[in-house]
Amino acid sequence: MVIVLIVLFAATLVYFFLSERVSNFIWLLSVQGVILFGIAFNNLLHIQPLGLILILLETLIVKAIVIPWFLNQLRHKNELKRVHESKVPVFYSLIIISAILIGSFLLSYTIDNEIIQLRFFTVALATVIGGMYFIVIHKNIFSHLVGFLIIENGTFLLSLAVGGEMPFLVSLAVLLDVLIAVLVIGVFLNKVRDSFDTILVSKLNKLKD
């Protein structure tokens, strides 16, 4: 079951690069949250209830509901364009994301390691690289935030490979930290939009010497 969800997770990654609509980005992030919930639920049933509740909270409530809702608020408040075009044509992005997926599979294939859970590692790696690529090809800071969240989801996927064994307090701290970081970034996005009247990153160039 877990492997099916992981493949689905990888499929959402492909769709991130296919779509250019802001609403699709938000929707896909929510879907990723639900898939992560499924993986976590399947993978971590054996750990103590407190940790389980925390991880379910993190995926289902925070990743699937709170953050997408927050992004939607941001989007409406700042009257963002419905479509965010990327610098690189979608066509090439799709080729590149396929190459990233294949590359990380091949990398995992060459690794012979019994301790790490390779299937998590593979897709997590592809997601993190994909997220960075997402940030690189997009021109506005809202999409950059989306890219950051993709990276976060990738690291979370990998953390599920060990997450069950992390101390409760530590996981709680990580959860709060990430949530606060996203909220603060969102607040700053609002401020940038208010002061610069745009969210295009190319307009953020007052610092150049």
Binding site: A161, A181, K206
Partner: peptide
Amino acid sequence: ETPLEAAWKYLFLSSVGIAIAFLGILILAT
């Protein structure tokens, strides 16, 4: 405006960097 721009860039790039570092920590954890 300039501090805002710097704050945004710092916040964003740091967050991304720290997420990358977290990946490294997770690999150590595994």
